[in-house]
């Protein structure tokens, strides 16, 4: 996967196929980290690239193309989640109380555990944490891409890090009790 900071984001954004080839993995990973169900990842990635293709002319190259794609993926995931919630309410199949924050940890593997921890963060903190901690982006880059003030970005990242530490502590405490 090519690092976009090496290439001109504007040149790259002109071609949706190149954009797709370089960032399909990133969009899939991001959707998963944002809480999308694994079975819906393909549909979400498809929708995100369709939206990106239609909005290519709006991309001005001020932000990193990855943060731009991330912002699109975030909106698509939110839209999908709203639809799922409506469907579940209609079918009455899922109780509203079964939120991720109340689920016990599944220690299937480390990556799954991390996803469970991520889902306990508020969405505004989670998005910044994913880009900063997992994708290695700077606060300035994240802020430009998500339309946030750099100080707000930094503050959210700091709070997210603290909360993740607390969640890990809680998880370890649960393991010791169990």
């Amino acid at each position: 996967m090519t690092n976009l900071s090496e290439a001109s984001a504007l040149d790259e954004a002109l071609d949706i196929e190149t954009l797709y080839r370089r960032h399909f993995g990133f969009v899939c990973r991001s959707a998963l980290r944002l809480g999308a169900e694994p079975a819906s990842i393909d549909d979400i990635a498809q929708e995100a690239f369709v939206v990106a293709a239609r909005r290519l002319s709006e991309f001005e190259g001020r932000a990193n193309v990855r943060t731009w794609l991330f912002a699109i993926t975030l909106r698509v995931v939110q839209s999908h989640r709203r639809w799922l919630r409506r469907q579940r309410r209609k079918q009455d199949a899922y109780a509203e109380t079964s939120t991720a924050s109340e689920r016990p940890f599944d220690k299937a593997d480390a990556a799954t555990t991390l996803l469970q921890l991520l889902h306990r963060l508020p969405e505004s903190h989670r998005t910044v944490y994913i880009l900063g901690e997992l994708e290695g982006m700077s606060c300035a880059e994240i802020g430009r891409g998500l339309g946030l003030n750099p100080n707000t970005t930094y503050s959210r990242l700091r709070k997210a890090r603290e909360q993740m530490q607390e969640e890990v502590q809680r998880m370890l405490a649960q393991e010791q009790v169990g």
Binding site: G25, R33, A110, L115, E133, V168, L172
Partner: peptide
């Protein structure tokens, strides 16, 4: 210990293979 544990979890997620 929690910090090390978190770092291990992050490393595992960073190493998630591409499709």
């Amino acid at each position: 210990d929690p910090a090390r544990q978190l770092e291990q979890l992050l490393a595992a997620e960073r190493g998630r293979p591409d499709p």
